[in-house]
Simulated assay, not measured.
Amino acid sequence: MATSPHTDNHALTAQLARQQRLDALFVNATRFFAFLVLCSLGGILIALTLGAIPSMKEFGLSFYTSSEWNPVTGEFGALAPIYGTLVTSVIAIAIAVPVSFGIAVFLTELCPKFLKKPLGIAIELLAGIPSIIYGMWGLFVFAPWFGDNVQPWLIEHLGSVPVLGKLFTGAPIGIGMFTASLVLAIMIIPFIAATMRDVFSVVPDLLKESAYGVGATTWEVMTKIVLPYTKAGVVGGVILGLGRALGETMAVTFLIGNTFNINPSLFTSGVSITSALANEFAEASNELHLSSLLHLGLILFIITFVVLSLSKLMLMKIDKKSGK
């Protein structure tokens, strides 16, 4: 039995109305989730700021210029944790980025096919290892070996070099700023390498084959074709690794030495913001001590925000130049 045109129009209208309702629900749901992220971010910032107010009132700007940290006398300064956080993160990134780039290039361009999948899985598994495992391995295995075999050699051969030698002086005790930086680099290499591998693999084969066809080397293809094509993804991977390096807690706490001092030598013990929070937050003896720790958390939040903002501005500048 044939349906009337009126019935067909009514069904189409109902179906269209249902699709519009579902589309509106989808749009509003995504808008809500995006707004929820902003609210969470703002809530964290407000909570840290409110908690840090007593410390701000008590110490003012001297909190950022003093390395004194003494809960007994009520003297607190953030300079040593800020210094330790920045130094360990910068060294870790400086080591991890070229190593990750080499791994990604090998996996996408040079690796035999039968090895690509096992090595890719191994990289992803390394990224999933909990940080406390890295910290325990670093404390019980890597630090003793490093202190017995590598630090004495570096002190002997580099300690007398003008200017540079100041970085490699001190007793070879294993733990310290440099050891924490090395383990941080090992931790973030899987994240950066996996991201670089994924973005390198999306480059059209036609572009690479054309470059190889006119005589380009693998290095030229990677630097002149692949990297310009994937610069946003590469920078994103580096920032992902830097974010983990800045926020890493347990591994750094195990290896950095947890001493509130500032020393040019990378072999001496130090402290980072995260290690200070991990060591003292549960034992904060008074309101000023707790407020100073929350103040450190606020500083770490701001440092991370500034790093992310600068990376975004750098990407915008690169895109603007490439457009010209």
Rank of each mutant, 00 (worst) to 15 (best):
P264Q: 10
S201E: 13
K224R: 15
V234S: 05
K208L: 00
V203N: 09
F254P: 05
Y212G: 01
F260Y: 15
F191W: 04
G237P: 07
L298M: 15
A211G: 02
G297A: 12
N286F: 07
L293V: 02
V221H: 09
H295E: 08
I192F: 00
V238C: 08
D198W: 01
G215V: 00
V202K: 08
I239A: 09
G233A: 08
P228G: 06
H289V: 01
Y212W: 06
Y212R: 02
F200P: 08
T268C: 03
I239Y: 04
P190M: 10
N258G: 10
P264Y: 11
G270D: 07
V199W: 05
T217F: 07
L277A: 12
P264W: 09
H295Y: 15
A245F: 03
A278L: 09
I189P: 09
G215K: 01
E209Y: 00
P190L: 10
V221Y: 09
R244N: 06
E283L: 09
K224D: 14
P264A: 10
T195L: 02
V252E: 10
L255T: 09
S291W: 13
L240F: 02
K224W: 09
A282I: 06
T268S: 13
F254C: 08
T259V: 15
L296M: 14
S272D: 08
K231Y: 14
F281W: 13
V252Y: 09
G213L: 03
L277R: 03
I273H: 11
G241C: 03
T249I: 07
L298P: 08
L246S: 04
K208G: 01
L298H: 05
L288T: 13
F267K: 04
F200L: 03
G213A: 07
G270W: 05
N258F: 11
G243H: 04
A211K: 03
K224T: 03
S292W: 13
V203I: 02
T195Y: 01
A284Q: 08
S210K: 01
L296Q: 08
V235N: 04
K231I: 15
T249V: 13
S272G: 14
G297S: 12
Y212H: 06
L290N: 13
F267H: 04
F200R: 06
L246W: 04
H289I: 00
I188K: 09
L290T: 00
E220A: 11
Y212M: 01
F191A: 10
G241E: 06
L227F: 14
V199R: 06
F200K: 06
R244A: 04
P264I: 11
V235L: 15
I256V: 15
L288Y: 11
L288M: 15
